[in-house]
Design a protein around this nucleic acid. Sequence first.
DNA 1: ACAAAAGTGTTGTTTCTACACCCATGC
DNA 2: GCATGGGTGTAGAAACAACACTTTTGT
Lengths: 252, 252
Amino acid sequence: MMKYSNQSRILVSIDCVVFGFDGENYKLLLIQRGFEPEKNKWSLMGGFLQPEESLDEAAQRVLHELTGLKNVYMEQLQAFGCPSRDPAERVIGVTYVALIDIKKYEKQISNHFKPKWFMMDDLPELIFDHPQMIELSLKHLRYKAALHPILFELLPEKFTLPQLQILYEGLYGITIDKRNFSRKVLSTGIIKKEVEKDKTKSKKGAYYYTLVKENYQAQFQRILNFIPKNDIPPGIETESKVQLAYSEISDN
Amino acid sequence: MMKYSNQSRILVSIDCVVFGFDGENYKLLLIQRGFEPEKNKWSLMGGFLQPEESLDEAAQRVLHELTGLKNVYMEQLQAFGCPSRDPAERVIGVTYVALIDIKKYEKQISNHFKPKWFMMDDLPELIFDHPQMIELSLKHLRYKAALHPILFELLPEKFTLPQLQILYEGLYGITIDKRNFSRKVLSTGIIKKEVEKDKTKSKKGAYYYTLVKENYQAQFQRILNFIPKNDIPPGIETESKVQLAYSEISDN
DNA sequence: ACAAAAGTGTTGTTTCTACACCCATGC
DNA sequence: GCATGGGTGTAGAAACAACACTTTTGT
């Protein structure tokens, strides 16, 4: 096999931003780094790309090795490539975003590497550019969730409308009118009411709902709007990607 | 400086998908590859990441070296990492999307490497996974343009409403009612009418419009809808990203 | 009986889509 | 004077946001 000469080869790491929801709050799964530099400091789930695996495979492997998690919703976000992002050596970091229901995986999570859930507003100091990765992931999640029914990946199979609403309200820091919210969600047909109720949070109890798989996957591409337009606070960026430059069209 | 041991280092390439518009059609800028393997076959604007540059810098450099283009709208799309994507050696490909007005840069484009514009429906055979990169870029462009006023990057400073409409109609393969279209676009305040008219395409002439920079940048993050909802044909994917897996929520 | 959370309907406003005619000009 | 493409307005339908009371049941 021929090789390209005179080119420098670089390490590629995979960094997984794992968002979780426990029924009340968003959390982030972090781990204490097991090797130098920055050993024992908090870090995203990360690892180096191996010779024979694709990026997607590596992301699944890294997450599985560090947490035991499998079959989790994951998507590639963005490659980070600042030359100085890792002080030890040049490393390109490819970021993945994962969404899981904390309670569901509570037992599945291996504690070999002692991953820990942190509240989003109480994150520890993190290595390298991991804070930026998290910030971009959060922006991306806000952006995507405003358009696609992605947040269901954070919920258990059976969930209630109030739970779902908390999920949306929490992500954007808003409050939504429950009548309008339930009407919008139900009109899409992606969830259906079960007979049982969740009585753990109120005396009356709230009906459980489950996803209607066919409609869910069909609507996944669709642009929805569970979020009232005017309720998205101006401070929240809804752009998924950084843009490098405007052309001169907008520079003049 | 310490290094990570026992990890394999990999080449990182930057591949730029350069979309252009000439007033009538979308085109793609391609180049004949200058080195083995696949020398002289058609390729995206590509090059290897250098040790001291960031990914974004590399993208700008590669595009500039091959075409002479500078100050172009560009954004990172996605990293491609299939181990077999380059037969010579393992290479991670980071894809960037660029948008330019063909006429504006007609003279600026250097022909040292002889880049050539191809019609979107008449692309030559391409190397490696470049067809997939292009396909994903096109999907991304359709997705993003349906929500953000990004297509203006393809137009000259002064453009007409019919031109703008052709831009949108061409991207989605639809026809749009011109009354509704102009009302929607104008209501955003991102463009303003000039006094002159473009008389090259009709006897009456069409008014020129220009971007209102402040409103344009302000609305860039906004979710707009110049495209009538029902007019987006079902075959057109509007999803920007591939997702790796659904969680079991949707697998049950 | 009362506190706490869940559920449900209506109305006015806004936004969207569908649709057809006149205008200006070069030939 | 006519052919060509450019410009404009209205009316009905749909979607949206605002809003308050009743239900259930555990204590």
